[in-house]
């Protein structure tokens, strides 16, 4: 609980001299932390007198804090549980988080099933030849346990299977991508928005990862990131949510963080 204070301490956005008149308290998912924080900073610059206090303590804590009223907005990288639905929270989806499974561009394996990926990351399959590829050892690249991407990957792909402890643990997306782009046998996973030509994202269960596939829901390794509120929302909080859904945030910050804008759905003509 206390742990994520490391990331959470800054009262970002109140560099100015005058005391802010109004505070909007946002807490919850660490995955959403960078978006909520940077958007909060920009919002505060445009709205002097308002400060957005963002902290990341995990989705469950965020949902709990908005339920009991200690936060204005609870951010979450998971859906509500049955028990949480009864509390009557309002849901505002803000972004898609899709995870691409990436390999070296020269790797001839272009598609894997969810089960294959699970077997690879739990250390059951250790050689690409077992998947119809060349006789080459699989180099596993995993994320650290503090990572929201790892959390999502574990939930969607791994189910009850355990990660192989022999995997290289890297605490950052860019490093995972850099290593996979250099090592022929490597496999890792990163947010779809960070996939570049240096690596290749494989199709999962026959679906190529793409923005369209994520929005239509056919690409399996994805989740929706939410803002939850309860009942009547204060004016500043409502404006902040509106701001987060505006192109100024969706097309810049959300994309920079590797996610897919929730507004892309409308753009696609849904």
């Amino acid at each position: 609980m206390v742990a994520l204070l490391l990331l959470a301490t800054p009262l970002t956005g109140c560099f100015g001299t005058g005391m802010p008149r109004e505070e909007v308290i946002v807490s919850g998912s660490t995955t959403l932390l960078p978006i909520a924080e940077v958007a909060g900073e920009m919002f505060a610059e445009e709205h002097p007198g308002v400060s957005i206090l963002v902290s990341g303590m995990g989705s469950s804590a965020g949902i709990e804090s908005v339920t009991n009223g200690s936060s204005d907005i609870g951010t979450s990288s998971r859906e509500l549980k049955e028990s949480e639905k009864e509390t009557g929270l309002d849901d505002t989806p803000v972004a898609y988080d899709a995870i691409a499974v990436i390999v070296h561009p020269d790797n001839p394996v272009t598609g894997l099933s969810t089960m294959d990926v699970r077997a690879i990351f739990s250390g059951v399959i250790t050689n690409w030849s077992q998947l119809g590829g060349p006789d080459m050892e699989i180099g596993l690249v995993n994320r650290d346990e503090a990572s929201g991407t790892r959390e999502a990957f574990a939930k969607i792909i791994m189910d009850d299977a355990r990660f192989d402890i022999g995997a290289v643990i890297l605490p950052g997306t860019g490093q995972v991508r850099a290593v996979v782009s250099e090592v022929p046998g490597a496999i890792g996973y990163i947010s779809l928005g960070f996939v570049t030509d240096e690596v290749r994202a494989v199709a999962i269960d026959g679906v190529e990862p793409s923005e369209e596939a994520v929005i239509s829901g056919t690409y399996p390794v994805q989740r929706v990131l939410h803002f939850f509120t309860r009942g009547e929302v204060g004016q500043s909080a409502a404006e902040y949510i509106e701001y987060v859904l505006s192109p100024a945030v969706q097309e810049t910050i959300v994309r920079d963080a590797g996610f897919i804008p929730i507004t892309a759905k409308e753009a696609l003509g849904d």
Partner: peptide, 8 residues
């Protein structure tokens, strides 16, 4: 920055 590896 080095471990995140995005903004090298």
């Amino acid at each position: 920055l080095a471990m995140e590896g995005i903004n090298m």
